[in-house]
Amino acid sequence: MGKVAFVFPGQGSQFVGMGKDIYENNDLARKEYDKIFKNLSFDLKTAMFDGPEELLKKTKYTQPAIVAMSLILDKLLKEKGIYPDFVAGHSVGEYSAIGSAEFLSLDETVKLTSFRGEAMNEIAEKVNGGMAAIIGMPSEKIIELLKTVTGVVEAVNFNEPKQTVIAGDKDSIEKSCELLKENGARRALLLPVSGPFHSSLMKPAGEKLKKEIETYEFKDTKIKLVANTTAEIISTGNELKEEIYNQSFGPVRWVETIEKLKENGVETIYEIGPGKTLAGLIRKIDKNLKVVSINSLSAIDNL
Score class of each variant (00 low, 15 high):
37 F>E: 11
248 S>K: 04
249 F>T: 07
42 F>G: 15
238 N>F: 02
178 E>W: 02
172 S>I: 09
261 L>T: 00
302 N>A: 15
123 I>P: 02
281 L>G: 04
145 L>V: 00
244 I>W: 08
248 S>H: 09
112 L>C: 06
154 E>P: 08
23 Y>D: 02
193 V>L: 13
12 G>Y: 04
234 I>T: 06
167 A>C: 01
298 S>D: 15
52 P>Q: 08
286 D>S: 13
293 S>K: 10
27 D>H: 07
126 K>W: 00
136 G>T: 04
250 G>F: 06
96 S>Q: 03
109 T>E: 06
65 A>E: 05
226 V>L: 05
10 G>W: 04
200 S>T: 15
53 E>N: 04
100 S>Q: 04
145 L>E: 09
162 K>C: 00
250 G>H: 14
209 L>D: 10
173 I>T: 05
117 G>D: 03
157 N>G: 07
72 I>H: 06
303 L>W: 06
234 I>D: 14
269 I>A: 08
173 I>S: 05
233 I>V: 14
82 I>C: 01
272 I>P: 12
39 N>E: 12
240 L>M: 12
194 S>A: 15
242 E>S: 13
67 V>A: 11
242 E>G: 00
191 L>S: 11
114 S>M: 07
128 N>Q: 12
118 E>W: 08
260 K>E: 14
211 K>D: 15
26 N>A: 09
78 K>F: 00
256 E>Q: 14
225 L>K: 09
219 K>Q: 08
41 S>C: 00
100 S>T: 11
114 S>F: 00
12 G>W: 05
122 E>K: 13
52 P>I: 01
96 S>T: 02
212 E>G: 01
103 F>M: 08
120 M>Y: 06
293 S>Y: 00
183 N>P: 11
165 V>C: 00
71 L>G: 07
67 V>F: 02
59 T>G: 14
79 E>P: 00
37 F>H: 13
263 E>K: 08
222 K>W: 02
203 K>Y: 14
15 F>Y: 15
133 A>Y: 11
90 H>T: 08
11 Q>Y: 03
266 V>K: 07
215 T>E: 15
99 G>T: 13
266 V>M: 11
208 K>Q: 14
74 D>N: 15
293 S>Q: 11
27 D>K: 12
289 L>W: 12
242 E>L: 05
226 V>G: 07
194 S>T: 15
295 N>R: 02
2 G>M: 15
250 G>P: 05
184 G>K: 09
12 G>P: 06
116 R>A: 08
130 G>H: 05
179 L>Y: 08
98 I>D: 03
254 W>T: 10
222 K>L: 09
10 G>V: 04
261 L>P: 02
77 L>R: 02
134 I>E: 10
100 S>F: 00
186 R>H: 14
74 D>T: 14
93 G>Q: 07
